[in-house]
């Protein structure tokens, strides 16, 4: 534990850019690619993942001195799966339309590397307060990228953002953007732009 404690503010902000789950560490790409065909879907998936991440971080951080090392992954998965089921049932019960459009990708949050990765790398070794801050930062960073991806893909693929039509009749939607190849292309451009900004900063 010789690591120097960074400030509370930095604990949150690192998830937004420097250690952003999608742009920097490329974790949790399955939902990132699969459901961001509209901004609303990106938002819903971001929030559901953040909820699971925060709740699991809270639990695992509190139980970190209690869970034996050999069964930690099993314990984490049970805890994560519990909150994923809670989130899935919540969406099905209160937002049936969103639940239907996200399809199987809400249950699949359970295998999202981002969540298990944060538990193994952070929550299992840090205080509850720190783990929560980390969860907030990572969840926010993940959600923001998903919403941005959803906005770009929805704009080019359907001519609207959050269901509001922005491009008129003249615009012929690029169908490919709401299909899987559009997800890969957009994400590729996002990561390229992020790396380009980092390079510029490093040389500046």
């Amino acid at each position: 534990m010789a690591k120097k404690q960074i400030s509370i503010w930095q604990e949150i902000v690192k998830g937004l850019w420097r250690e952003n789950p999608v742009l920097a560490t490329l974790l949790g790409l399955c939902p990132t690619l699969a459901v961001t065909n509209t901004a609303v879907n990106g938002l819903a998936m971001g929030l559901a993942t953040s909820f699971v991440l925060l709740s699991s971080s809270l639990f695992i951080s509190s139980l970190r001195n209690f869970i034996p090392h050999q069964v930690r992954i099993a314990s984490y998965i049970v805890i994560i799966a519990t909150f994923v089921t809670v989130a899935d049932r919540f969406l099905a019960g209160f937002f049936p339309a969103i639940s239907q459009s996200l399809g199987p990708y809400v249950p699949l949050i359970v295998v999202n590397c981002l969540i298990l990765g944060r538990q193994e790398a952070f929550s299992s070794k840090n205080k509850i307060s720190r783990s929560l801050l980390d969860g907030i930062g990572m969840g926010l960073g993940f959600s923001l990228v998903l919403i941005a991806l959803g906005m770009v893909r929805e704009l080019l693929g359907s001519g609207s953002i959050f269901g509001i039509t922005l491009l008129g009749e003249w615009f012929e939607p690029w169908m490919v953007m709401i299909l899987p190849p559009g997800a890969f292309l957009t994400l590729g451009f996002f990561i390229a732009i992020a790396n380009w900004i980092n390079d510029r900063r490093a040389t500046a």
Partner: peptide, 28 residues
């Protein structure tokens, strides 16, 4: 937390966690 534990503790902890998980899910 890298101390090794006996199998008794492992069983106990996993049982407790799954029981808690079951309770939360049942209620929800």
């Amino acid at each position: 937390t890298q101390h090794t534990s006996g199998s008794g503790k492992m069983v106990l902890v996993l049982t407790l966690i799954t029981a808690l998980s079951g309770a939360i899910l049942a209620a929800w």
